[in-house]
Write a protein that binds this DNA or RNA. Structure first.
Lengths: 338, 338
DNA sequence: CTGTTAGCGCTTTCAT
DNA sequence: ATGAAAGCGCTAACAG
């Protein structure tokens, strides 16, 4: 490994001059600078960031913790985050928590050890509080994305749950539906709580009665959608919903699969709409009606917020950014479907 | 920040004893160990990896460079890589090269500065040679995934291009196609070369004449698929292909879109098959016939190879691992399509 | 404008 | 079994 000393010797200067040539070239005389630069080039010297970090207390390393990058929603968040990080000279460590607070905790421990400068995190849910407090204790800035955590003060960027649900409900109502079910995530996740609340409000706005039987919940990992759908369609005709609002893309896709298994036509026998677009590659055969959240921007702007926070270009007040979704109407809720 | 000195003071020992308590506890007397452990717990001490790296020359940091994580093929590679890295105690830096050797070069520079322990890389193409040589010069182990680079000796893990193409061609031939076009990536990428070669061989095996007119090429970034498709369908009837083999998922999806614009039915007027599955979430409405490469395993095993290489558990001989694809027959090449 | 000194937090080496 | 000294590669602070 080539060190600053090797360069110094070669250029006949002190290591300090080399350091300055790199970080404050204007403090160096023209010809010395030339000599140093040439030595650097000849030796292929690359400053060691571990050593720099040790003195500067900055690693220029950020982390994105998502629950699962395989979910296109999070894929795009990560992509957006990476683009912004690159733009600002940071690099990104990727972590998948798999909705497991324990796993999340281990990652955060490693990140702290690593001296990470900040974290963009989609927490696993309210159980993440302990982990976030750990970050706070270590004074590591973080921004929450997609999910908030009660009693944890921080910057937050997320989709607009109220608006999104309303788009979907209004659409279903326009299609003539009155009996609408919600298949929601666990209510340890802020999203789920907000979506349920928005769901009830939206129904009220449309003068449609809510029905507790139609509000179901599934864990995000290990969902047994068959059971849920069976329960729903086993209801007596007059109490059976004609449409399902799925609280995310996994739920939506699985719901349709389960319906299919039971030979229930979508949308004829049951319309389905959901949050997030399961299609990362712009699709040629779109089926599912969705409220597409601006995932890329969630990541990009979230990262921007984080970096502003890190570099102190932000006031002390925490910001919350809410980005609206786009309704994309497709076959699962309109014409003849599958 | 709590340092090893703080712990030492609290436990009434020297920093060295704390270090040993952490790394070689068996060298420490029972009761001293207890005291140290308690001090660590009370202070919430976490060893600083930057400092450790400085002396150990190991960062426990690995990088995955892919061209674009938004492509589900690469998403799964990264997911597999991350799982293996975690298992082995490493963390992962994510980089998107966007098929740009320049961008790749910048990343590699940063990674070297960071003292990265190794890189799993899907190179942009033959232009990556210079960048890989840079890694070699710095003695940073790397494993190529999905694409090889001529004159760069290294471990390699990739899908089986010959077998995959054969699966797709055999399928098309079974469906009665004789006029088969190939829309390929640029031949600066090993993949494209291998797929073209396999394409010609497979045709020969089926006693189907190849036709240079039917072998087309597109850049992976900024593809003008409309132009390509127009060119193809503008051919006089007797020289017009009835099926297209797309060399990857982006090409496949875009080809179908372009066909659609021209009101050419898939598969009635033109069958389409492709490499890679564009569906990350197991799909409920599958359309495209594909040779699905085992992306997750490419990442997982590639990472395993890399770590073995890093930890010296591997001979000097470079390994090449080729994993077979799975043919998934869907509507784009069989029954009535869109 | 350039150099010297000291120290970031840790571990290796040598003593005790 | 434990400690002291030295140094990993770099830069802040002070000198000159």
């Amino acid at each position: 490994m080539v060190t600053i000393h090797d360069v110094a010797k070669k250029a006949n200067v002190s290591p300090m001059t080399v350091s300055r040539a790199l970080n404050n070239p204007h403090l160096i005389r023209e010809d010395t600078l030339k000599r140093v630069e040439q030595a650097i080039a000849e030796l292929g010297y690359i400053p060691n960031k571990a050593a720099q970090s040790l003195v500067s207390k900055k690693t220029m390393l950020l982390s994105v913790i998502v629950t699962n990058i395989s979910n296109p929603f999070f894929t795009e968040i990560v992509r957006g985050a990476e683009d912004k990080a690159l733009q600002m000279g940071y690099q990104l460590i990727l972590n998948n928590s798999d909705e497991d607070p324990e796993k999340e905790s281990n990652y955060i421990h490693s990140l702290i050890a690593r001296g990470i400068d900040g974290v963009l995190i989609a927490p696993t849910g309210d159980q993440s509080r302990k982990n976030l407090r750990q970050l706070i204790k270590c004074r590591i800035p973080f921004v929450l994305v997609d999910r908030s955590v009660p009693d944890v003060a921080s910057d937050l960027i997320q989709g607009d749950n109220t608006q999104s649900v309303r788009l979907l409900i209004d659409h279903l109502v326009e299609q003539g539906h009155k009996n609408i079910a919600l298949i929601n995530g666990p209510d340890t996740i802020s999203n789920s709580r907000e979506r349920k609340k928005a769901f009830l409000e939206a129904l009220k706005l449309c003068d449609i009665p809510a029905n507790e039987e139609w509000i179901l919940q599934t864990p995000l990992i290990g969902m047994d959608m068959d059971r849920i759908i069976k329960k729903l369609v086993a209801l007596p005709p007059e109490r059976k919903p004609t449409a399902i609002l799925a609280a995310n893309n996994f739920i939506g896709v699985n719901a349709i699969k389960s319906l299919r298994k039971l030979n229930i036509g979508v949308p004829q026998d049951m319309a389905v709409v959901c949050f997030d677009d399961p299609e990362p590659i712009p699709d040629f055969n779109p089926f599912l009606t969705v409220a597409a959240q601006p995932a890329y921007n969630l990541g990009f702007l979230g990262m921007q917020l984080l970096i502003e926070r890190i570099e102190g270009r932000t006031t002390n007040l925490y910001q919350t950014i809410i980005l609206p979704s786009t309704l994309i109407v497709r076959k699962s809720s309109t014409s003849v479907g599958m």
